[in-house]
Design a protein around this nucleic acid. Structure first.
Lengths: 349, 349
DNA sequence: CTGAAAGCGCTAACAA
DNA sequence: TTGTTAGCGCTTTCAG
């Protein structure tokens, strides 16, 4: 019966649109129109095709479709992480959850691409430029990373997590790091703290820069003098944060508050403070950033700044899909507000 | 010049194998043979094609290739996580790193599929059964999850993380959870502890069952009586672990050691013990499992059991690729040894 | 060892 | 509204 002369179809093989068309008594074109929700199909034809699809368990072959449409219906999520420790923080996982939710609703696949070295980053770049995905979300690139600019130039639609440093306008989604940090420090000021230190994050990433700037904003606004001796350099890693804070305590033993640019650094800070004989929050109040799970594991529990990570992931996906469908439009940036979560480490609500 | 009459190629379009063949002065077939490392090509032809490929920056179109080969050159990584908190633990991220390393070496793509609800799990099942990927790695399924069995039955090559409960033999990669737990408890016994409690993990997952069994093994071997009152039920979440341990302390106030089935539960245990006025490790020694980053953030630092997570990820990928290429062979299981990492919480080395 | 030709499953003109 | 036709870019017989 079948046009190729084979009497039957081997088990495990999938029905093609040809099979559907034949069973429904229509042409391949009509079957295809139904599969793609084209409006120009008669109700009868549509019903017949729908029934045939159900009967045969037909699922379109993505490869064949891609070949025609020149779209892969998949996007890349690139995790750029020189240190390899990215997943120690639940941030990326939660972002993936958000992205994946938004994509599932549109039946787009998420291709995960990890680049831990410059060499791998090149591999990823080649992959993206080859057009194997319709666009990409870049997570974690540092300020000096050339990848975003190069992809943008080669016409690969991209969306960044976090504001891009330097020139170039690429779409991005960010949280209001500066405003959040400022809220945190204002809260400490309101609590009567007068010697507020900070352990900042990496300064080649917008989050690091912005959170430190928010700290400075709040001090400035409160009319407190900017003392560089109150700023310690961390890199989001608890060990470096502990060292940085110990040095800071030698320089400025009388501090009465610490704002850390991440919860894991804040947790380390609490331990260092306690080991130095200081009580938290009585002697020194502490506020972190992220509202990660560790915030609930410190004693006292950690006050922190929360960002809507899953929502940000969804928005990144939405922005990218929009960009893919409207290549002409200018890139857009979305910034989400942050919330202060007050717990015991800063004296409680 | 071109066969379709178009004078040139619009910018951004990619060279096809046809372009390569023309420039190299050979047929498409020969160009294809070179691209696929077929041995039956003359050195001259190979050189000419290679040069043309480089000159044109030719990258094969995956969709077209898939259409012919009936392979997608991509695999799915399914993260089954009813609770949604999977990424709070770096385990999954590290596994992804390992998987992705092994795949990158073979130029296979990783399609990430998240299933947080039964509905999403069905969606994922349909996707996998439609043949959109060549196989899948399943991470995190609970013992009662029907997905592995169903995929196996529909002929989708799969590899599980963790031993499968119940019947059915599916390929899997696991760490020696039982042996690791046993080592941990033997270590406590050797340190002279005589009343050793455990906070176990979820008992519908092999890791939960096996770690508890390892605990029991060690007690049995040491000739210590099995006291059900020394076992507290956790679910890997620190809050439940804290509650469980508090109850246990009421039942058995004289315990001198705790083995927790995860580091985050062990960290919670340390805090509960300290808040109850007990010293760690002097009064109560504590050992966790995973050697996750939190192990270094507790005071005292946490003794724990380490598993080679990235290596396990690589092995899962390798196993799956082997299974895809040799569909006839029986499924295989690989178990990795675990190491005890002794730190201060159990009295130090 | 090489080339001509067929066709994977699908969508998109174009006609009807 | 529908069907016919022509490929998308690639691999793979099959002759030579």
């Amino acid at each position: 019966m079948s046009s190729n002369g084979r009497p039957g179809r081997e088990p495990g093989a999938h029905a093609t649109i040809e099979d559907v068309a034949r069973l429904a008594g229509v042409s391949r074109a009509t079957a295809s129109r139904v599969a793609n929700n084209s409006p120009k199909v008669s109700p009868e034809a549509r019903a017949a095709v729908t029934a045939a699809v159900a009967k045969l368990g037909y699922v379109p072959n993505r490869a064949a479709r891609s070949l025609m449409t020149r779209r892969s219906d998949s996007i890349g999520v690139v995790i750029v992480e020189p240190a390899g420790s990215l997943f120690a923080d639940p941030f990326f996982g939660r972002l993936l959850v958000g992205i994946s939710e938004a994509l599932a609703a549109r039946d787009i696949q998420l291709v995960l691409l990890m680049a831990q070295t410059a060499r791998e980053e090149e591999r990823v770049e080649r992959y993206l430029e080859a057009g194997h995905v319709d666009g990409a979300i870049l997570v974690g690139p540092h300020g000096n990373d050339p990848l975003p600019g190069r992809l943008e130039r080669s016409g690969v639609p991209i969306v960044l997590s976090g504001r891009q440093l330097g020139d170039g306008t690429v779409s991005h989604v960010d949280s209001d790091n500066r405003g959040g940090a400022r809220m945190a420090v204002e809260h400490l000021v309101r609590r009567g703290r007068r010697s507020i230190a900070t352990i900042h994050g990496m300064l080649d990433m917008s989050s690091g820069i912005d959170r430190r700037q928010g700290y400075r904003d709040a001090l400035h606004e409160a009319g407190m003098t900017q003392d560089p001796g109150l700023e310690a350099a961390g890199n989001y890693h608890p060990v470096t944060a502990a060292d940085a804070l110990r040095e800071l305590l030698e320089r400025r033993p009388r501090i009465d508050a610490v704002f850390a640019a991440s919860d894991s650094m804040a947790a380390a800070a609490i331990r260092v403070l306690q080991e130095s004989g200081r009580r938290v929050p009585e002697d020194v109040a502490v506020v972190g950033f992220d509202d990660s799970p560790v915030a609930l594991t410190t004693r006292p529990e950690l006050s922190t700044v929360r960002q809507p990570i899953e929502v940000m992931g969804r928005e990144m996906a939405r922005l990218l899909l929009h960009r893919i469908e409207h290549p002409g439009e200018a890139p857009s940036q979305v910034v989400f507000a942050t919330d202060l979560v007050v717990r015991e480490s800063s004296g409680g609500a």
